[in-house]
Design a protein around this nucleic acid. Structure first.
Lengths: 232, 232
DNA sequence: TATTGTCTTTGCGCTGGCGCAAATTATAAG
DNA sequence: CTTATAATTTGCGCCAGCGCAAAGACAATA
């Protein structure tokens, strides 16, 4: 599968790039395909490439010395990942990137991007914007983890996911999500048992509907109330 | 108190700036003094300025709708703060900045920095480096909070603080920190009671020595072992 | 020296959430 | 259709950590 410069316009960081620049980027990149379950890179690897996902979904996660892991973020088509390690020379990736589907991604040599950015301020600007939003999201999630109860955090995660990826059908205001209990647990710093108990409870109350690796939000507004700690 | 361009060289983001540029920055800034306990800005304010602290210490913190707060970071002399809000136009500060001492800071109009950066790639580069390290630290702390027990998190926080600010005396390998139990609690997402109990315990074991708003690390290595969860 | 305010310690009871284990259900593969 | 595999649910016991309350220690001020 080939990629045209026009396709690259969809990448937020490249939105202001010229056609010529996009061409140059393509010439200095290769395509990499990773099949479901495989890894683009592991936490600690030297950051040789930064990626633009063209197909599939990628999970970014970080693990501690005992192997316990947390979900930092899920990457969708035309989003960048592995960019953090690429900014500094001789950096290592701070997280691992696992393919949730069969994935294809454009791999850009980080050394190339380095020199490329130096003469194109608009790109660093867009990159900084992206980074800023990362920092803000991480700070918000950190605060959440530190001060909110599990119930609120899970509700919040569902709301956030709904905003990012939810499929909203026209007729009914239901939002469909595809995540396992384990996924949600890793996103909210809890266990799959607790998530399961919570979801069951909410289902009994008619707020959501659940299935295997599937959560449908029936009353998002009620979730918002739970997230804010107003419930009970 | 006046600031010379040379002083500004101490700011990481300005380390590669020319004398002329530093002068220009100074001309487009004002000095602001905030006394102990006061605020440079509050979370949610529109980000008109970004600051370079010249004197004192500033605590960056975020609070949720119930007023509970977490410590994101402490700022020392010649470090920047409030830069996040400044990158995007019409942004608001994602955190509040409280003066821990009587503080003085250089306030740079964010609009000015905007246009300034556009023609000076080296600065955006250094800014991105700074942002990258923020993201990585937040990710690490997030993982810590999600997967580690309180004991480990507090030990980790002490180690981190020792690296950032600890005063190491020549004769003995003891490191002196100046933080209240409440401070440490807000940094680690726990309560001052739990921190107090932990510190008391460690003091009994001879790992640290404590006082009012004072913690002296006697055996940092033992703390590292606790942080890694090897203890018990 | 006495006073006041702040920081710290510690006892005590409680509970939110963890995590094992075992049963149940959904999906995929043969 | 059967079997294997993976995801989910739920009962149960337990404990790490919370948070009130009250006392104690320290620092600043008059």
């Amino acid at each position: 599968m080939d990629i045209s410069p026009k396709d690259l316009k969809q990448v937020v960081v490249f939105q202001n790039a010229t056609e010529a620049d996009l061409d140059l980027i393509l010439q200095n990149s290769i395509m990499r395909s990773i099949e479901e379950g495989g890894y683009f890179f592991f936490q600690g690897d030297t950051a040789e490439y930064l990626y633009v996902l063209t197909n599939g979904q990628v999970k970014l996660m970080q693990s501690n010395s005992n192997g316990q892991q947390v979900n930092l973020r899920t990457i969708y088509s035309w989003q960048m990942f592995g960019a953090l390690g690429a900014v500094r020379a001789e950096a290592t990736y701070p997280a691992s990137a696992q393919a949730l589907d069969n994935c294809t991604a454009l791999a850009i040599k980080s050394g190339f991007l380095h020199s490329f950015v130096e003469t194109r301020p608009y790109i660093s600007f867009d990159l900084m914007n992206l980074m800023t939003s990362y920092i803000q999201e991480m700070q918000a999630r950190y605060r959440e983890l530190a001060t909110e109860r599990v119930e609120q955090r899970v509700a919040n995660a569902l709301i956030r996911l709904a905003g990012q990826t939810g499929i909203r059908s026209e007729k009914e205001p239901a939002i469909e999500l595809s995540f396992s209990r384990q996924d949600v647990a890793e996103m909210t710093g809890t266990t799959l048992y607790t998530v399961s108990r919570l979801l069951s409870d909410w289902e009994r109350k008619g707020i959501i509907e659940t299935g295997r690796e599937r959560i449908r939000l029936l009353k998002p507004h009620d979730l918002v109330r739970i997230a804010e700690g107003l419930e009970k």
